[in-house]
């Protein structure tokens, strides 16, 4: 464990912050500009994982393991989300023969 901590602390915290921010922004942009639902799901994963990484990094720097606990929670949640999300996408595809987000505009006034 100690080894891992040292390895992580070997990289300055700023690098983690910048890296995670970049990945997160990529995720956000992916969600906003892509029209394929699957890509959007992947972008959401990207955002979640960037946060995970950040949590782990802070945890290592602060020496507080609760950040890592959160990472596990988020991973479990992400798995559940993907399971439900993919199921929805499959149902949508079966009905509309498309996974284009533009086609999902039935829920409105």
């Amino acid at each position: 464990m100690g080894n891992l901590l040292e390895n992580m602390q070997g990289i300055p915290l700023n690098h983690y912050l910048i890296f995670c921010s970049i990945i997160f922004v990529i995720g956000v942009i992916g969600v906003l500009i892509r029209r394929n639902v699957i890509i959007i799901m992947m972008s959401i994963e990207l955002m979640l994982n960037s946060v995970n990484l950040l949590l782990a990094a802070f945890s290592a720097y602060l020496g507080d393991p609760s950040g890592q606990v959160f990472v596990f929670f988020i991973m479990a949640l992400a798995a559940a989300e993907v399971a439900v999300g993919l199921a929805i996408i499959i149902m949508v595809y079966r009905n509309t023969k498309s996974v284009d987000i533009e086609s999902l505009n039935k829920l409105r006034w």
Binding site: I101, N105, R108
Partner: peptide, 10 residues
């Protein structure tokens, strides 16, 4: 409430 999911996300 246009129903456009992309717009909602935005």
């Amino acid at each position: 409430q246009s129903g456009n999911v992309g717009f909602y996300i935005f």
